[in-house]
């Protein structure tokens, strides 16, 4: 199985590759449009700001092949911005269009007394359907590492694979045909995170 990690020139991808290696799956970096051809599964571990990420994907020529990959429903695993960018737009950079695979916007946690932003640390993901293959080997919920100030609000509620409480409940992960995407960082979530990566490989990489 050829696993590719999208490399648009920002952030540290080493930890994502290390985490996949820990579950015995090597990966290559995808930094040019022609790199998509040989792939069986794509991981998009975005970090940083919504608008910057869109701009960098466009500048590196990765935007169009990425959109095509999603339109063809090829196996996709999104982490953090790789989850947020699947939606239409984000409050972080109004006017910038996301990948628009799904309807919905990415919004900021509301300012509330005592609510720290970013949402940083370990929090529970409550599984919408604990029998989903993504959650194999886990219970009804599991604790993962989060660090983000924005989160998507999918218009189609049936996309939700898990939800998390922080100033109310938000959708912290989605599942669709050949697609999983989560707000938290499985590559930083010790055993639970590695279990999810292993499950994702089995579920998406078949």
């Amino acid at each position: 199985m050829n696993l590719g990690i999208l490399d648009y020139g920002a952030g540290n991808l080493r930890s994502v590759r290390n985490a996949f290696l820990a579950v015995e799956q090597p990966a290559t970096f995808v930094s040019a449009p022609e790199h998509f051809d040989a792939l069986d599964m794509l991981v998009f571990p975005g970090q940083g700001a919504f608008g910057d990420c869109v701009r960098q994907l466009q500048e590196t020529g990765l935007w169009d092949p990425l959109k095509k990959w999603l339109a063809e429903e090829r196996p996709y695993f999104g982490i953090c911005l790789g989850y947020q960018l699947l939606f239409q737009n984000g409050e972080e950079n109004p006017g910038v269009e996301g990948l628009a695979k799904f309807e919905g916007s990415v919004v900021r946690f509301p300012a509330q007394p005592g609510l720290k932003i970013p949402h940083m640390g370990w929090n529970k993901a409550r599984f919408t359907d604990a029998a989903h293959p993504a959650w194999k080997g886990m219970g009804d919920d599991e604790t993962f590492y989060f660090v983000h100030s924005y989160f998507p609000q999918p218009k189609d509620a049936s996309l939700a694979a898990c939800t998390t409480d922080y100033s109310g409940e938000f959708v912290s992960g989605i599942a669709a045909k050949n697609l999983l995407a989560v707000q938290f960082h499985p590559e930083k979530s010790q055993k639970a995170g590695l279990t999810l990566l292993k499950n994702a490989l089995e579920y998406l990489g078949r």
């Binding site: 290390n18 290696l21 590492y145 660090v147 590695l194």
Partner: peptide
């Protein structure tokens, strides 16, 4: 460390 520890 990053090769062996999967935490921040």
């Amino acid at each position: 460390t990053a090769e062996r520890c999967f935490m921040p």
